[in-house]
Write a protein that binds this DNA or RNA. Structure first.
Lengths: 341, 341
DNA sequence: ATTTATAATGTTAGCGCTAACATAATGTTA
DNA sequence: TAACATTATGTTAGCGCTAACATTATAAAT
């Protein structure tokens, strides 16, 4: 006589037995309480607590073709920028029934597409992806996902479903404008990895310098190597060696800016008097450095928090006309660009 | 007539149909190929590719009471130390059938216990947890998990199942020894968060100073606030204000050490001549700073990589007598403790 | 030559939950 | 008062896969 061995823990049938109702009523009490009378709800909740019942997420996902997972794909696990957004996502989802499935695309669009396929195959409740430059196939998959999708950390007018972030182009332009405004004349750019968002920052930066008649393509240094503090130091040393007239740099992120500061210190170049430095994102360390570093402040935690709020609203069926939320950025001026001239 | 609507994608029954075998043979071909003849395996793989079949992870987990998930719980999402280990885990699992379920315990043992319960309720293939100071209940849950369990980032002689890391006590002691050896006399400690591993480092550090007759409890500054570069600057400023004779500090991590460096620079204190600074973990930025910062180097990527290798070996049934792997640490001496005296 | 063991493949039932449909009681509208 | 609608609860079947047992062919041992 065949007899399957279960997982050993209480099932919804046990709860139904104890509460004196059918299994589907227990299921409704837990998933859609308004469909069950007060009286039965109380009996069911008592039984749930008494039996220490926890719904079997795999069975539920199989039966409903939907799971309690929110798929989140980030391009880097070691980049502090995404860590803040991820922390917000975890903080916002923790009290609810959802769990995060985290994927690392390593800044490769094809890897992101593959992860999207894998995650969608598991019927997630929602998807969060970084940026707005997915492959066409990935975009189509997400459009047909049948669940809320949020693109974070960038902004545009053509969201797959919803989008929350800020304009990297405008951020780059604000950085360039600021350096021009502070009187710097031979202004460079240090960029690593050069993913789509870094490119946008560079384009915005160029735009600002071109408007001021100060754009010099020879002062643009980029590499596809991944970003680091050491790389920032290295790139500014190389640039200074070639162009000793350089008097300011916009670094495409804060690690690079910190490295640029270290590079100047080693070379005995005075920041901000002889070199202005501005970074992007405004990580915590920028205020602590000596001199403190100017940066384009972005609220990465707020982005993650808002993304989850939008998902929850869409899952709850709330009409939301605001599918695109621009949380903007702010120039955070500090000592590294505040020269007295 | 009741008719359930499936997820719409091909199922194992479709593959079996196309290959002319039964569903369990397809299942065996994918999960345990050695149990299926070469001839049938080829036919099955052809059918899988032709139909673009992807196994339904929830159905498999329900039927077998085991899922393809590796549960990983870290105490922080924004701490670079865990990010390196996490990146290794993702890199090692990516090519196989496993997926990571990431939980954030926020340095709270009770939260970790709750996450362990939740993850174990989903029948993971393995569990990776940080450190060795789980609650008794969590320890028991993991001991009875029925799957491989690895404790990472610490070392001890009483693993739940397996353990890979290094001794924080010995690392702290090495840091203390080094400062004594470099001739510093009034040596302090800056510690944030003060989780169990930070405590171990402090104990080791004390041990080294006590051996050299240089331990001064008045020079120990700790706080339960979470670690940051700014906090490092703040704490050293406070300590210097109280004890102007301070001539070296061991910071319980690199962010604090960098902050301490910035604090000294602001105060016009010369590093390393008037102040020695040593950190812990040896993050990438330590080499780039000016002066470069000494640190206790730990190979966090190797820890994650090894943990996954141990899991795979145990899942493959390979006898492993090495349940505890100590990957050690190394003193990475740089300018910040290399004074000429 | 016979018996036992092994390898490969198939069949049955069910893992735990819920979609879809069914039923009954109660409320609303004409 | 009758017809229709809504609410609350129950029943049936199955979502997709695999544990457990069954069968058959082949190999190995006696």
């Amino acid at each position: 006589m065949r007899k399957r061995k279960g997982a050993g823990r209480p099932t919804i049938a046990d709860v139904a037995d104890k509460a004196g109702v059918s299994t589907i009523t227990v299921s409704r009490a837990l998933r859609d309480p308004s469909k069950v009378s007060d009286y039965l709800r109380r009996k069911i909740n008592n039984a749930v607590n008494k039996l220490n019942y926890v719904p079997h997420s795999h069975a539920s996902a199989l039966a409903s073709t939907r799971s309690n997972i929110v798929g989140v794909i980030v391009p880097s696990l070691t980049n502090n920028v995404f860590a803040d957004t991820l922390r917000a996502i975890y903080d916002e989802l923790e009290q609810g029934p959802f769990q995060v499935q985290l994927g690392n695309s390593r800044y490769v669009a094809a890897d992101e597409e593959r992860l999207i396929r894998t995650f969608l195959g598991q019927g997630p409740s929602a998807m969060i992806v970084a940026g707005k430059d997915q492959t066409d196939a990935a975009r189509e998959l997400l459009q047909n996902a049948g669940c809320p999708v949020v693109q974070v950390m960038d902004i545009g007018d053509d969201p797959i479903d919803m989008m929350v972030g800020f304009s990297h182009f405008e951020g780059g332009r604000a950085a360039g404008r600021h350096l021009v405004q502070m009187g710097y004349k031979r202004i460079g750019f240090l960029g690593a990895r050069m993913d789509p968002r870094s490119h946008s920052r560079l384009e915005g930066f160029k735009d600002a310098l071109q408007s001021g008649g100060l754009y010099d393509p020879d002062l643009i240094m980029t590499t596809t190597v991944s970003s680091s503090v050491s790389l920032g130091a290295e790139l500014i040393e190389q640039l200074i060696a070639r162009r000793s007239d350089l008097d300011a740099v916009f670094c495409n992120n804060d690690d690079m800016a910190l490295g640029a500061l270290f590079g100047c210190q080693k070379a005995g170049i005075c920041v901000p008097d002889d070199m202005g430095i501005i970074g992007f994102n405004d990580l915590e360390m920028m205020a602590a450095s000596h001199p403190s570093l100017t940066s384009i402040h972005t609220d990465r935690y707020a982005i993650g928090k808002r993304a989850v709020e939008m998902i929850k609203a869409e899952l709850d069926g709330e009409a939301t006309d605001q599918k695109i939320v621009d949380l903007g950025f702010e120039l955070q001026q500090r000592e590294s660009t505040s020269r007295n001239k």
